[in-house]
Amino acid sequence: MIMGLFNDWVVVVLMMIGLYIIIAHGNLIKKIVGLTIFQTSVFIFYISMAKIDGGTAPILVDGVTQYSNPLPHVLILTAIVVGIATTAVALALIVRIKEAYGTIEEEEIQEQDSQHKDSHKLNIHNSSEINRDKKEC
């Protein structure tokens, strides 16, 4: 039983490390790294389930009858792409947050927001606006 479920347990451990980083760490980039670990552990879970004893990679060859299950592979190919897509958008957001707040630490951002909460003035961050400010400076 230990060997049979070993992969699944490791997956759970990895998943929880990822989730812990996402929730407990305040640095936005670190959170994204945590998210990557979290997602990758799900990939490992799917791929482990596709494995079959005595099987080979699912590419048809003469004389082989036992192949690992191709379907989870297909699903995870898609999931990997989804993962990188999310990472790219998240990183783009981080770059913009750094520009607008001057920090990428969760606590400092929330501090700044709570100070500005009651002001009616917009915290404008568009690039065109930045240019305009620059001229005034």
């Binding site: 980039i29 990939f43 791929i47 699912p58 590419i59 690992s68 990188i84 981080i94």
Partner: peptide, 29 residues
């Protein structure tokens, strides 16, 4: 685990593109 296609993709994405993007972002942040 016999998932060669997935391995190929993960190597190019997980170890390649996403690391690269994160490095670029770190230089900015």
């Amino acid at each position: 685990m016999d998932a060669v296609d997935v391995a190929f993709t993960e190597a190019s994405v997980g170890a390649g593109i996403s690391t690269l993007l994160m490095l670029v972002v770190i230089t900015m942040t």
